[in-house]
Computed example of a mutant assay.
Amino acid sequence: MDKISIIAIIGGLTAILAGQALEGGHLSSLLQATAFMIVIGGTASAVMLQSTPKQFLTGLRMISWVFHPPLHDQERLIRDIVSWSQAARRGGLLSLEGYVTTQKDLFIRKGLQMLADGAEPQIIRDVLETEIGIFEHARKQAVKIWESAGGYSPTMGILGAVLGLIHVMENLSDPSKLGGGIAVAFVATVYGVGIANLFFLPVANKLKNLIRVEVNMKELTVEGLISIANGENPRIIEARLRSFLGLND
Rank of each mutant, 00 (worst) to 15 (best):
N209G: 13
L201D: 13
G179K: 08
I124Q: 11
I236C: 04
D73M: 10
I124R: 08
Q113G: 06
D174M: 13
G12I: 08
I78S: 01
H68V: 14
A183T: 15
A33P: 15
I40F: 08
I237H: 04
I9M: 07
L165M: 10
R212M: 08
G25W: 07
M169L: 15
D105R: 01
F67L: 14
V193N: 04
A44K: 03
I78E: 01
S5Y: 02
D174I: 12
S45E: 07
I228W: 02
R242L: 09
P154E: 07
L128P: 07
G19E: 09
L60R: 09
G246I: 07
T34S: 14
I40E: 00
S148Q: 14
L13C: 12
F244N: 13
I236Y: 03
E129W: 14
E170H: 09
M156I: 02
L201K: 15
A239M: 11
I124S: 10
R212A: 15
T102G: 08
T102S: 12
V39A: 01
G118C: 07
G25I: 07
L17F: 13
G98M: 05
T58L: 14
Y99A: 14
G246T: 06
Y191L: 03
Q55W: 06
K218C: 02
D73Q: 12
N233I: 01
A185N: 10
L220D: 05
A196H: 04
Q113K: 15
D249A: 09
A119Y: 13
G25C: 04
